[in-house]
Nucleic acid binder design. Structure first.
Length: 487
RNA sequence: GCGACGGUCGUCCAGUUUGGUCUAGGACAUCAGAUUGCCAAUCUGGUAACCCGGGUUCAAAUCCCGGCCGUCGCACCA
């Protein structure tokens, strides 16, 4: 059984995530729900992201709408780049851009918005055949990854955003102004994005509706090395993969050797790495992969992917793109809005460095890297989640199902359940209850036993070591606060 | 989207070849009770499923058709 199967089974059995609308048979692939435990991990993961990136760097967070107007995507290039007519050979199944074929074989210029039936007619009239096998073509289809929606009684065209960052770009001028922003300025956002993937697969790894946590750093392109806060991360170790080679190198050395282009990129990649070091994803199984020119997105001049090693191989978790002024320039032109800002008395159109994180993939990776089977102890399954990411932080377990034990348990529960995610369980043997807790990653269990009745102390049982020690009930709150702290 | 294979309690599996005691069975999980009392104990009892729609038939989990979903491969993945 693969690690993916183990996690998938655990996710279904313990309510981390599961297919959307699963009681109906017409549910579509690529849509998944987070159950109670999944939501708690996701929220805690995002809290960590905010702590280590947004607050640490003084970024501003916004929450934009998921439906955005057509003009946004005219400017962003999404409409243009994803409305190509595609035909498929019936015989050999190869796919081709229909407009390219018609141009190549018949020399006819095909207008971009030509309707599908007209495209099909052109193919028929000009007797265009598959260049591979000379086979016939199917009727043409348009692949646009964006979901179209209709607004109001006139069915005005709008779209579900295929990436959250467009909100940040279009909101930039107001935020910069009203927040009295200064370059470099990070604007962050967590939210849903939507892509109509052709074949979504593998649970949370490829979704049609998914969470992104994106950061756009707006900067002065002439000051990419003028960054005093670089000192904070100059010794951060980065694992950079380029041209089939992995180097482990400090941020400073990476700059000096020209592996990273400037201090701004080095700084934010370092913050990102320091954040991931706190997620429980094994540092040795991550890398910053430099993308080659033919892999990069059309808007990107420098691109690194933060990747993690999983049972599927290397998986992209964060796309880090230097988007230059591509976005602000095109939004400025399309909307006819001035997006220049003042930086030290000089007017600049800011450049953008982006850290675009796929939340769902991160959650999966954290689960996979936390999953252990303890062969010594009857194959006990445990999720060694960081305590601050665990969906439940402590279990409260009466050793006996007797009234005085239950009463003490309830007292402890009400003492801490507003500040922490805790779970009370009296069902089954004490060993079984410990196992149930560690399977969802609960790091601590407090057991109310005979001695509790005498002296108001409880047993703490640790998930990873299975060790036990005693603590006063009055100290439980501070114990948790201490052991759930991040640094 | 194409091709191959598959879809049965929460999970894993038996049953489908050859339609009929299948009123769908087991294990684990779960719930209740008893017993026990610090690492998945035992006993008793319970809850719980044939992916959806249509067809063939006296009779469909089983055969046929369509759809949906899943795994793998191809293609796609700004």
């Amino acid at each position: 059984m693969s690690a993916f199967d183990d996690i998938f089974k655990l996710a279904l059995e313990r309510g981390f995530y599961f297919p959307s609308c699963e009681i109906y048979s017409d549910t579509n692939a690529g849509f998944w729900e987070y159950g109670p435990n999944g939501v708690k991990i996701k929220n805690k993961f995002l809290d960590l992201w905010r702590r280590e990136l947004v607050r640490r760097d003084g970024m501003l967070e916004i929450d934009g709408t998921q439906i955005m107007s057509k003009s946004v995507f005219l400017a962003s290039g999404h409409l243009k780049n994803f409305s190509d007519p595609v035909v498929k050979c019936i015989k050999c199944k190869s796919s081709f851009r229909a407009d390219k074929l018609i141009q190549d074989q018949a020399g006819i210029e095909v207008p971009e918005r030509l309707q599908n039936d007209k495209v099909d007619l052109l193919i028929k009239e000009n007797n265009i055949k598959c260049p591979n096998c000379n086979g016939e073509f199917s009727t043409s289809e348009r692949f646009n990854m964006m979901f179209k929606v209709e607004i109001g009684p006139n069915h005005d065209e709008a779209f579900l955003r295929p990436e959250t960052c467009q909100s940040i770009f279009v909101d930039f001028p107001r935020i910069f102004k009203v927040s009295r922003g200064r370059l470099p300025l990070g604007i962050a956002q967590v939210g849903k994005s939507f892509r109509n993937e052709i074949s979504p697969r593998q649970g949370l790894l490829r979704l049609r509706e998914f969470y992104q946590a994106e950061i756009e750093i707006f900067c002065n392109p002439n000051k990419l090395d003028d960054l005093p806060k670089f000192e904070d991360i100059k010794n951060t170790i980065l694992r950079i993969y380029d041209k089939q080679q992995l180097v482990e190198i400090t941020a400073t050395d990476a700059l000096e050797k020209g592996i990273l282009p400037n201090k701004l990129v080095a700084y934010y990649l370092s913050l990102l790495v320091e954040f991931f070091n706190k997620t429980g994803i094994s540092n040795k199984r991550t890398r910053l992969r430099r993308l080659s020119d033919d892999e990069k997105a059309f808007y990107s001049s420098i691109a690194f992917d933060l990747e993690v090693d999983t049972s599927f191989g290397w998986l992209e978790l964060v796309a880090c793109n230097y988007r230059s002024d591509y976005d602000l320039m095109s939004h400025s032109n399309t909307s006819k809005t001035n997006l220049y800002v003042m930086d030290d008395d000089v007017k600049v159109l800011p450049h953008v460095f982006e850290l675009s994180l796929g939340v769902d993939r991160c959650i999966y990776s954290i689960l996979e890297h936390s999953y252990f089977i303890d062969k010594e102890k009857e194959d006990r399954i445990l999720l060694k989640l960081k305590p601050y990411l665990s969906p439940i932080q402590a279990g409260i377990l009466p050793l006996l199902k007797k009234d005085e034990f239950k009463k003490k348990s309830m007292n402890l529960l009400s003492l801490i359940n507003k500040d922490f995610d805790v779970f009370y369980d009296e069902s089954g043997s004490i060993g079984r209850r410990y196992r149930r807790l560690e399977e969802i990653g609960v790091p601590f269990a407090f057991t109310i036993d005979h001695q509790t009745i005498d002296d108001d102390t409880v047993t703490i049982r640790y998930r990873d070591s299975m060790n036990q020690e005693r603590i006063k009930i009055s100290d439980v709150k501070s114990f948790l606060a201490l052991h759930l702290s991040i640094d």
